[in-house]
């Protein structure tokens, strides 16, 4: 039962959603199953939150290294949760927008979540710069092609590219760096990306088929073996 029921669910739901594309009478059922999926996704968020509390709670209780920072995580989590679930400071009633301006939830989003999330990714600019200096070498023909394309795109996406080659006659305008950058993106880049997309597309289709036919069972863990 631990293996058969999940397999049956996957096969049934998978086939039904495929049929719903081809048979309009099943379309409504397909939509409902998508809605079920959306509702289960909410429980997946709860699972994530629960897991976070469990892990940091354990770390705190067992006084593991950096346990004090787990207090920060838990305080932040519960404060944001309370602000959102109870709509603290919300200018409207319980039916109003949870992210309404002026609510504690919106204030925490704007002043805690936003700066933290944005800065976390902004750090990547430093690492990209460091990698450019240390790792981006024209070691062979392939690396040189990559480097040249990157140079044209880097120059072409700033006004500098236009300034450098604006003297070109109209009959050679494809060699102007911004035009060349556009051409690279819309011709060789398109071809390369399309080859990748076709490959990934085929991979997704075959994996979906393996899942629906019950051939692929790794998601069941040990039970699926």
């Amino acid at each position: 039962m631990r293996r058969e029921i999940p397999l049956a669910i996957t096969i049934f739901v998978g086939f039904l959603l495929i049929f719903s594309v081809f048979f309009p009478p099943v379309e409504d059922l397909g939509e409902n199953f998508s809605l079920f999926f959306d509702i289960i996704a909410v429980f997946a968020f709860f699972l994530g939150g629960g897991n976070l509390v469990r892990i940091h709670g354990k770390k705190l209780l067992k006084r593991k290294p950096d346990w004090a920072f787990s207090i920060v995580t838990l305080v932040g989590f519960f404060l944001m949760l309370a602000a959102g679930l109870f709509k603290i400071g919300n200018p409207g009633d319980i039916s109003s927008n949870v992210t309404a301006e002026g609510s504690l939830f919106a204030i925490m989003y704007d002043n805690i979540f936003k700066p933290l999330g944005a800065t976390m990714y902004a750090l990547l600019a430093f690492f990209v710069a460091s990698a450019s200096y240390r790792a981006f070498r024209a070691k062979n023909r392939e690396a040189t092609i990559l480097l040249s394309a990157a140079f044209v795109i880097l120059l072409g996406s700033t006004p500098l590219g236009a300034l450098l080659t604006s003297w070109m006659p109209d009959s050679l305008s494809i060699l102007e760096i911004p035009n060349l950058a556009v051409w690279i993106l819309s011709s060789p880049n398109l071809a390369g990306q399309r080859a990748i997309i076709i490959g990934i597309g085929l991979g997704v289709v075959s994996m979906s088929l393996r899942l629906i036919l019950g051939v692929e069972r790794s998601y069941l863990g040990d039970e699926g073996a």
Partner: peptide, 20 residues
């Protein structure tokens, strides 16, 4: 800033390659 940063990064690539 984007323009200046692109110039700097391209210079990094050139200098890095000279070193290499």
């Amino acid at each position: 800033p984007q323009t200046i940063a692109h110039i700097v990064i391209m210079s990094f690539i050139v200098i890095g390659n000279i070193l290499y």
